[in-house]
Design a protein around this nucleic acid. Structure first.
Length: 703
DNA sequence: GGGCTGTACTG
DNA sequence: CAGTACA
DNA sequence: GCCC
């Protein structure tokens, strides 16, 4: 009971904050909230949800663990309170006090108490009168942006007159934070705004007035518009980057037409067979790491074969056409490019050929993703969306991050900066809501609200706890609810399992990136010990190391043997290799170990001789016939893997770390009914080929 | 309105 | 079984 | 979140 209350309080506080932000016209308009409020009367809908909020899916997920999930009550409580409030939406008393609390630091020094609401703790003042006599002109002056719409509605409720056009009667120009002073001048075709008659204020101004129940001094610094310099008012201004900033109110004429995405419907993969390796790769390729070298023979022999298809590859080819011709060719009617020359072309063409139907092109694995976005014109937008995705991931929203990442991948490939909603919405995986956010981002920094959420103490504590290996969202929430605030609290008071204790003890170690060089040292050490036990054991360095990363989160190793079955390999690793490495002092602890009977993974921590930094290290035990599938799995990245697996699934197959299986029967919602028949597990490239995915070098799998 | 990967280890 | 983790 |  007590913990429930604590959890509830934490959550309520968190959402109070969020909704307070909504009320206070933050950068990010909360369409979801507005919708929810409108819809709530009809039904407590499951769909539309506020931005920094749990999704319908997470709501359902959470509601299963109702004990841990005060979200719903908190949200509904707040929403119903809002909806049942008098027409003013805000109960001025309550909101004002809470907001005052929040913004004490920015409280205007000179609150001009023009309104004689002398008694602060009195009945709610007639809000409708606060702005009466004032004429507001908004900039931009339309309702397109939900946040602004909200502001305009509020202003009108409090008695302001919303001026549709700019005129002499305007008393205040309320400017979106995304806009700057020059843009106003340009739009209004003015050299300067007559400051005596008209106040130009930041978008927060009306909200502050409402908060303080008075017309606050509009001349204060915190209401200055971007680009406004008090002394420079009359001087004609040079507009920085005027060409790149599309000022919406200026109308369609200004809007540039966004070129179509390059990647769309063009067969770039075909014409670009030689991807640029990351600079960092150059060194690592010649790097005589055992893992690397071990990979090379098969790789090079294969790619040689790839260029001049030999008999074996022909088999693959016929296999593809034999069993999967429907999916691989002319599956799509409107794909006018039906190539007639496929038979004679080499296998590389098969994978990336022009006949790949549209639905398959949409898979992440069907494109080169090098994960680079420095040179993208959308880098800024991408960065912010990435933060959003991370945030949603952390609050355990299962699906939004997926949507965000797909949108990010689209933006990465888009050659032009996307600035407007309209342009954004045309792109794949960018819908109405993300398009709106993209527009917001380019015009403003809507992430402020996200930051507010992040600045919430409860959220920060949760974020901290989530970094402890072994503590996930459920445990983290419980710990926060129990009132723990620091790692020290956890160490001394909290009830943790063994892994969590280790995770806590080595919090810093496990949260420190491992330099590429050190990954190799760990790998070499394991490989050497393995070779000592048996010459045939091979060790591959996987994960982001194989993708070329300069540093990694942990050390991922595949351990395999050319001839041994899994059973023998496992016994060797569990009974000999691991104990040996422990004895050497290299392995420090086991976090998840396979039994001698079955299983394939070993997780633990390792430490180089002479060092005292523990690193997370994972072994994957792989029999040779599963090596290809294991390489795919352990190379990742996760998004690439999911994409490959989903594609397989859509083709009636199944892909996991053991192999590619065909004729998998699936029930409702793709639920696996039969295991299917193993098609290929040994050869990484064949798995790609059979799936119809063009070969992707490891560093092209960074989706 | 349902789907968005598939698995392995722990307690 | 839920939770956590792995790519 | 988006897509079908």
């Amino acid at each position: 009971m007590a913990t429930e209350d604590a959890a509830l309080k934490v959550k309520v506080a968190r959402f109070e904050e969020l909704y307070a932000l909504d009320d206070s016209q933050d950068d990010e308009p909360d369409e979801g909230l507005l919708q929810s409020m409108a819809m709530l009367k009809r039904k407590r809908s499951e769909k539309s949800e506020p931005l920094a909020q749990t999704s319908s899916s997470s709501m359902t997920a959470i509601s299963k663990r109702d004990r841990d999930a005060p979200e719903i009550p908190a949200k509904l409580q707040k929403l119903s309170r809002t909806t049942s409030a008098p027409p003013s939406l805000i109960s001025p008393h309550k909101t004002a006090s809470s907001r005052q609390l929040r913004r004490t630091s920015t409280l205007p020094k000179s609150v001009v108490t023009t309104t004689p609401t002398s008694d602060p703790a009195d009945v709610a003042p007639k809000p409708a009168k606060l702005f009466s006599g004032l004429h507001f002109y908004f900039f931009p002056n339309n309702l397109k942006n939900p946040g602004r719409k909200f502001r305009i509605q509020k202003a009108e409720e409090y008695g302001a007159k919303w001026e549709q056009a700019f005129s002499a009667t305007v008393t205040h120009i309320v400017v979106d934070r995304s806009m700057n002073y020059d843009q106003i001048l340009q739009y209004l075709r003015l050299d300067a705004i007559p400051q005596q008659n008209i106040h130009v204020v930041d978008e927060r101004y009306p909200a502050d007035c409402i908060s303080f129940r008075s017309i606050v001094d509009a001349g204060q610094r915190q209401y200055y518009i971007k680009g406004y310099k008090p002394q420079q008012v009359s001087e004609p201004t040079v507009i920085p980057r005027a060409d790149s900033l599309q000022l919406k109110p200026a109308g369609r004429a200004v809007q540039t037409r966004e070129p179509q995405t390059l990647s769309q419907r063009t067969t770039t993969t075909l014409s670009d067979p030689s991807p640029v390796k990351p600079a960092s790769m150059a060194t690592t390729v010649e790097d005589p790491s055992p893992g690397k070298r071990a990979l090379e023979p098969s790789d090079s022999s294969l790619s040689a074969g790839w260029e001049r298809p030999g008999p074996r590859e022909q088999i693959v080819l016929s296999y593809c056409f034999g069993t999967d011709s429907r999916q691989l060719i002319d599956d799509d009617d409107d794909q006018g490019t039906t190539s007639t020359a496929t038979t004679g072309t080499n296998l590389l063409d098969l994978g990336s050929s022009t006949v790949v139907p549209k639905w398959q092109q949409r898979f992440q694995c069907m494109q080169q993703n090098t994960g680079k976005n420095e040179d993208s014109p959308n880098a800024e937008t991408i960065a912010l969306l990435q933060e959003m995705a991370e945030y949603y991931t952390q609050i355990k929203d299962e699906w939004r991050p997926i949507a965000y990442r797909k949108a990010i991948a689209t933006l990465r490939k888009h050659p032009v900066k996307v600035t407007t909603k309209e342009a954004a919405e045309k792109l794949p995986f960018i819908g109405e809501r993300l398009a709106a956010k993209i527009e917001e981002i380019t015009f403003a920094g809507f992430l402020q609200r996200l930051q507010s959420a992040r600045e919430e103490p409860a959220d920060q504590v949760l974020q901290l706890f989530l970094k402890v290996y072994g503590i996930g969202y459920a445990k983290g929430m419980r710990l926060v609810a129990q009132g723990y605030k620091t790692l020290e609290d956890l160490r001394t008071k909290a009830d943790l399992d063994q892994n969590q204790k280790i995770g806590l003890e080595h919090f810093d170690d496990f949260n420190t990136r491992v330099p590429r060089l050190e990954v190799k040292q760990h790998s070499d050490l394991v490989a050497k010990a393995a070779k000592n036990l048996n010459e045939g054991i091979q060790v591959y360095t996987m994960g982001s190391y194989r993708r070329g990363a300069e540093s990694t989160g942990d050390i991922d190793l595949v351990i395999t043997h050319a001839n041994w079955p899994m059973t023998r390999l496992r016994v060797m690793v569990i009974d000999s290799l691991v104990p040996q490495l422990f004895k050497q002092g290299f392995l420090k602890c086991a976090l998840a170990a396979t039994s001698r009977q079955d299983g394939s993974k070993w997780h633990g921590a390792s430490c180089l001789p002479g060092s005292n930094v523990w690193r997370r290290i994972d072994f994957l035990l792989v029999p040779a016939e599963e090596l290809g599938a294991a390489l795919i799995y352990f190379t990742g990245n996760d998004i690439f893997n999911r994409s490959m697996r989903l594609l397989a699934s859509k083709k009636g197959m199944r892909l996991n770390q053991r192999g590619l299986y065909k004729d998998v029967m699936r029930g409702k919602s793709r639920e696996k009914l039969t295991e299917g028949e193993l098609v290929e597990g040994r050869d990484e490239k064949k798995i790609f080929a059979i799936l119809g995915v063009p070969w992707r070098e490891p560093w092209e799998r960074i989706c």
